[in-house]
Design a protein around this nucleic acid. Structure first.
Length: 328
DNA sequence: CTCCAGGGATGAT
DNA sequence: ATCATCCATGGA
């Protein structure tokens, strides 16, 4: 066990890990336990310093004998690994200064000081976000944990069990039914198919890093279970494409209610185009700030939408005829 | 266009 | 405690 300290200015560990970009870190004491790639890590923040402990023990495949492999020697030294994962090299002050100046963005920027977009391993990021579709954060965390416990490698740090995320070839050799046991539902087939493509080298995630944003998005959307939103998440969190602007329900609400309050007819495509132009070169960062701020302070949509729709149908109303019933 | 798949957390009642 | 709603992909 190795204890290290890493300088970390302009950084808030808790906000970063709880902002819906990564789903496997667990609060333990004053810090968090998780994994950076295959390394089990405990990390806590003391002012402008991160204190991290990392397990350097032998690998062991859970529930399955596997020939003893030599410990993979990481090229990065441990402080560099932490520094790189948490993107402590991103010029956060510059990035935040590039956000548009408007009341919504200002509030989000103030609320999320120290939030960074971290660098996630590509496969782990892609697989996790395939599992995220039509799921809420709490669910995604459960799925991530189930996949890791069932198919990942068990590690330990600070007396805590930590499981690494299973590589594609490990998931490729399982079955849809096994994946469904992890709570994936219909996403199991998507994840399995994608894992097989990666395992068989039909898809080479690392080589995709050379592609342009548009080409990368196109390739990602070609994978089953990957639509525009998931593709943008993977671009942002796995490929450091800082301009990628994922639009989920929270962001869509913010855009509609705060930026288009008098225009309920603006389309989703219209919102996406607006966001790409308005939030600038670091749009992905702006999106993460808006997302976290909205989730922490905003409220979910009030109930009754379905009931109203049913009521409208029952009244024999057609599309749009019932607009006057809609809230606001 | 609509509906559905799966399912634990969440909020309203 | 019960119950409807949430979530944002892909296929019918």
């Amino acid at each position: 066990m190795k204890l290290i300290e890493v300088p970390a200015v302009d950084f808030d560990l808790a906000i970063t890990l709880n902002s819906g970009q990564v789903f496997h870190w667990e609060k333990v004491g004053t810090g968090f336990c998780g994994a950076i790639g295959d390394r089990a890590v405990y990390v806590e923040q003391c002012g402008n310093v991160l204190r991290a402990k990392m397990e350097v023990g032998a690998l062991r495949r859970r529930g399955q004998q596997r020939e003893e492999m030599p410990r993979p020697t990481t090229t990065a030294t441990t402080p560099e690994l932490v520094h790189h994962y948490f993107a402590l090299d991103h010029p956060l002050a510059e990035i935040c200064a590039s956000f548009p100046r408007d009341p919504i963005m200002n509030a989000a920027r103030d609320f999320c000081q120290g939030l960074r977009i971290i660098r996630q391993p590509r496969w782990e990021c892609l697989a996790t976000f395939i599992c995220s579709s039509m799921k809420q954060v709490a669910h995604i965390r459960q799925i991530s944990r189930a996949l890791r416990q069932r198919f990942g490698e068990k590690k330990e740090v600070c007396g805590q069990e930590v499981f690494s995320f299973p590589p594609a070839d490990r998931l490729a050799e399982t079955t849809e039914n096994e994946l469904r046991k992890c709570g994936l539902g219909y996403r199991a087939e998507n994840l399995l198919t994608t894992a097989k493509r990666v395992a068989l080298r039909k898809v080479t995630l690392d080589s995709w890093n050379a592609l342009s944003d548009a080409e990368l998005r196109e390739q990602l959307c070609d994978l089953p279970g990957v639509g525009a939103k998931v593709a943008n998440c993977v671009m942002l969190f796995g490929y450091e494409r800082i301009k990628a602007f994922p639009i989920d329900i929270w962001i869509e609400r913010v855009l509609r209610e705060k930026y288009f309050p008098r225009n309920r007819k603006v389309t989703s495509a219209g919102l996406a185009e607006f966001a790409a132009n308005y939030f600038g070169a670091h749009g992905g960062y702006a999106q993460q700030y808006l997302f976290h701020h909205a989730r922490m302070t905003g409220k979910r949509r009030r109930q009754g939408r379905i009931r109203r729709c049913r009521a409208r149908r029952a009244l024999g109303m057609t599309q749009g005829a019932g607009c006057f019933i809609l809230p606001l």
